[in-house]
């Protein structure tokens, strides 16, 4: 679909996509959205923090601890969190540990399909510095070079209690109005894109996914 935004910051070429399909994709960079009135924003942030919808994408072994977390033992639905199967509706992306290059590609696509207030939680040491797989040829070392990360939960594997603590941290960040990862991604779009393109050698997808 064509963009409905008229303001094009930086024209994208979508060079990775075959020419006859380029018109199907967005040709505009994302733009940062300013915060609204202080008090309105505070209320909205409260709602955002208390209704975190998690994208149901288990990107790594961290996904195994999400199951106890989402079910009876550590039930995070009592804090208003829910798994959503589609990126369009979710607001939290949990990167469950190491990211292989192949997964990173899908992660970027999923992340870009999420709508503006969106938050990223990096789970496990491998998102911080590569962890156990720091010298592997296929896993990225630092997640924050490719996506803006709001909270890291260290450990291998982090316990569910640690993940809940991470979510509490995320909530307080959101309520304080500091979790502006989506805007940061839009502002430093070129930097993120160049990092992503540096390691994804066959860039056969649109530059920005609606």
């Amino acid at each position: 679909m064509k963009s409905t935004e008229n303001k094009i910051i930086h024209p994208l070429e979508n060079a990775g996509v075959p020419e006859d399909q380029r018109h199907l994709y967005c040709d505009a960079s994302p733009r940062p959205y300013p915060a609204l009135n202080k008090y309105v924003e505070r209320f909205l942030n409260w709602a955002r923090a208390n209704s975190l919808w998690i994208l149901g994408y288990g990107t790594g072994c961290g996904a195994i601890e999400l199951r106890p977390l989402l079910t009876s033992r550590f039930d995070i639905s009592q804090y208003g969190m829910n798994p959503r199967p589609t990126p369009r509706q979710s607001s939290v992306f949990i990167i469950g540990g190491y990211l292989s290059v192949k997964t990173l590609k899908r992660v970027i696509r999923s992340y870009e399909q999420m709508q503006n207030p969106k938050f990223v939680v990096g789970l496990g040491s491998c998102t911080v510095n590569g962890g156990m797989y720091w010298d592997s040829y296929n896993t990225v070392n630092r997640l924050d070079y490719y996506l803006p990360v709001d909270v890291y939960v260290a450990g291998c594997m982090p316990r569910p209690e640690a993940i809940i603590a991470g979510f509490e941290k995320l909530k307080s960040t959101i309520m304080a109005g500091q979790a502006e990862g989506a805007n940061e991604y839009a502002e430093r779009f070129d930097w993120y894109k160049s990092n992503q393109k540096k390691i994804i050698k066959d860039w056969d997808m649109p530059d920005y996914n609606w």
Binding site: T59, G60, S100, K102, T103, R106, Y133, S136, Y137, N138
Partner: peptide
Amino acid sequence: VGYLHRGFEKLMEQ
């Protein structure tokens, strides 16, 4: 498949 490839076999050789 291959989304979870970490190269264990290579890492073990190291």
